[in-house]
Simulated assay, not measured.
Amino acid sequence: MKDKTIDYVLRATWQAVARMYNEEATKYGATMATGFALLSIDREKGTPSTAISQRMGMEATSLTRTLKSMEEKGLIIRKKNPVDGRGVLIHLTKLGKEKRELSKSTVLKFNETVRQHVSEEQLNHFMEVAEIINELIVDKSIFGDENPDK
């Protein structure tokens, strides 16, 4: 791993995780995106779609197709937000709640298996490094606001 860049390792690892989750989700007629969306929706109160996209780390427009597919499969329903009549809340159906539990157990299984093979200290270091990388990106400490065209 010495000759691999940090971004390469991050990308390759995430792609392997995503492939693994998608393979597992396919067994249940779903996708990784569907599973993560189910986990991002409040079981009882529902959730605005903008909050779902934030929790998933994606643009709201990218989430639209996933939500449409989930609605067609009977996993979610849209209801008017009682607090703000202009907004819509995404609610889980009974089937959506069942699939959410399945997604939750899949994620917990992944975490449990990794914890069996990685020490607490190693995991803490990994989390610390990931947090630092995220902070550097959010703070624009890597490339800043440089605009080479100016």
Score class of each variant (00 low, 15 high):
Thr47Cys: 03
Glu44Pro: 12
Glu59Ser: 12
Thr61Lys: 15
Ala51Ile: 10
Ile52Thr: 01
Tyr21His: 09
Glu44Val: 14
Gly35Ser: 04
Thr26Lys: 15
Lys45Gln: 13
Ala30Gln: 11
Glu23Lys: 13
Leu38Gly: 01
Ala30Arg: 13
Met32Thr: 09
Gln54His: 13
Glu44Gln: 15
Glu44Tyr: 15
Gly57Leu: 03
Ile41Val: 12
Glu44Asp: 14
Ala51Val: 11
Gly35Asp: 12
Met32Glu: 12
Ile41Gly: 00
Met58Thr: 13
Ala60Ile: 10
Lys27Cys: 04
Arg55Cys: 05
Leu38Cys: 01
Leu38Ile: 07
Met20Tyr: 14
Lys27Phe: 02
Tyr28His: 10
Ile52Trp: 01
Tyr21Trp: 08
Asp42Trp: 08
Thr47Glu: 05
Pro48His: 09
Met56Tyr: 05
Thr34Leu: 03
Glu24Tyr: 09
Glu44Arg: 15
Thr31Trp: 00
Thr61Cys: 11
Ala60Tyr: 06
Thr26Asn: 14
Met58Trp: 07
Gly57Asn: 08
Gly29Leu: 01
Met56His: 07
Leu38Lys: 01
Ala51Glu: 14
Ser49Ile: 04
Leu39Val: 02
Arg43Asn: 11
Gln54Asp: 14
Ile52Ala: 01
Phe36Thr: 09
Arg43Thr: 11
Thr61Leu: 12
Glu23Arg: 15
Gly57Trp: 00
Lys45Asn: 12
Gly35Thr: 02
Arg19Asp: 14
Tyr28Lys: 10
Asn22Trp: 01
Ala25Gly: 08
Lys45Met: 10
Pro48Lys: 12
Thr34Pro: 08
Asn22Phe: 02
Gly57Arg: 00
Glu59Leu: 15
Ser49Arg: 10
Ala51Met: 13
Ala30Gly: 14
Ser53Trp: 03
Ser40Thr: 03
